[in-house]
């Protein structure tokens, strides 16, 4: 590891992620983004819930808060309200964010509070052994769907946009340069930024879906990730089973902490 990234990590590596897991790639991309933005460790807070992706806060050397399953965002809101100057990053997974924490997710989006949420979507509950999540595609296999998942999957980016998030992007673990840029752009955007990263779980997802081995799963992700500009020119039929990557939605809206501070100032007569 380059020295400039090393400072973002505690000295407890290697991590526990399985061989071929995308979490390490996302963690590395995040560190590169941190370095390129010139952010100092002690100006940042990282918060996570429970699950494989939530282990990231164990390894990165910021102020970190490892919380309960699905509850990272309420903790993060508490931190940001209390310390508005801190840069807040939340690491979550598809189970943590879209299932047990789904309610917190939509309300965090609605408030448009200034923080960066990175949802590492590996399409499965990895840590507990491969149960389908709300982001497991229909027809795909999981331990709880041995004959194929009949549930339609959420599009977490569409939910984010509809719920009021003001920066919504999707990256993937193959296009790392793009992922770094999306994390940077999300961070620099004032408001609630959601970055979904399409990631891999060769053990609990790939194996069950006949995408055998980490390289095959990475190739699968590469082949199914379509740049937003190209996706716009493709028909629904051509995009079937694929997903657009890049900045999907960006707008300006009142940021929550600012609105709160204005309220306080107004009621206290500006004192």
């Amino acid at each position: 590891m380059k020295a400039c990234y090393e400072k973002y990590f505690r000295d407890n590596l290697p991590h526990i992620f399985c061989p071929g897991c995308g979490n390490g790639i996302v963690m590395g991309a995040w560190a590169r983004a941190m370095d390129e933005m010139g952010l100092e460790n002690n100006d940042c807070v990282a918060i996570s819930g429970i699950g494989c992706s939530s282990r990231i806060t164990t390894y990165i050397d910021l102020y970190t808060l490892h919380t309960a399953h699905g509850r990272a965002l309420p903790f993060a809101i508490g931190v940001k309200m209390c310390k508005p100057d801190m840069h807040v990053f939340v690491f979550s997974g598809d189970g943590d964010c879209a299932a047990i924490g789904g309610n917190h997710f939509i309300h965090a989006c609605r408030r448009n509070i200034d923080m960066t949420l990175i949802v590492i979507n590996n399409s499965i509950y990895g840590m507990t052994g491969g149960q389908y999540s709300p982001l497991t595609p229909t027809g795909h296999f999981a331990t709880t769907a041995p004959y194929g998942n009949i549930d339609p999957a959420f599009d977490i980016c569409k939910i984010a946009e509809a719920s009021g998030a003001t920066f919504v992007a999707r990256g993937d673990i193959y296009n790392i340069r793009q992922m770094i840029d999306l994390i940077k752009e999300g961070h620099n955007h004032k408001g609630f930024s959601v970055i979904e990263v399409v990631s891999s779980c060769p053990i609990s997802y790939g194996r069950r879906n006949k995408i055998n081995g980490a390289p095959a799963l990475l190739r699968y992700i590469k082949d199914h990730s379509v740049p937003v500009a190209n996706a716009a020119k493709m028909s629904a039929e051509e995009m079937k089973g694929k997903w657009p990557v890049g900045v999907l939605y960006k707008t300006e809206a009142k940021e929550y902490v600012e609105a709160y501070q204005e309220l306080v100032a107004r009621l206290q007569g500006g004192s």
């Binding site: 509950y125 840590m127 507990t128 052994g129 149960q131 331990t143 709880t144 041995p146």
Partner: peptide, 15 residues
């Protein structure tokens, strides 16, 4: 059914 370590196997076998 909802998984959590170490009881996950019960709903898993049952599934």
């Amino acid at each position: 059914a909802f998984p959590i370590t170490p009881s996950t196997e019960i709903p898993e076998y049952f599934a």
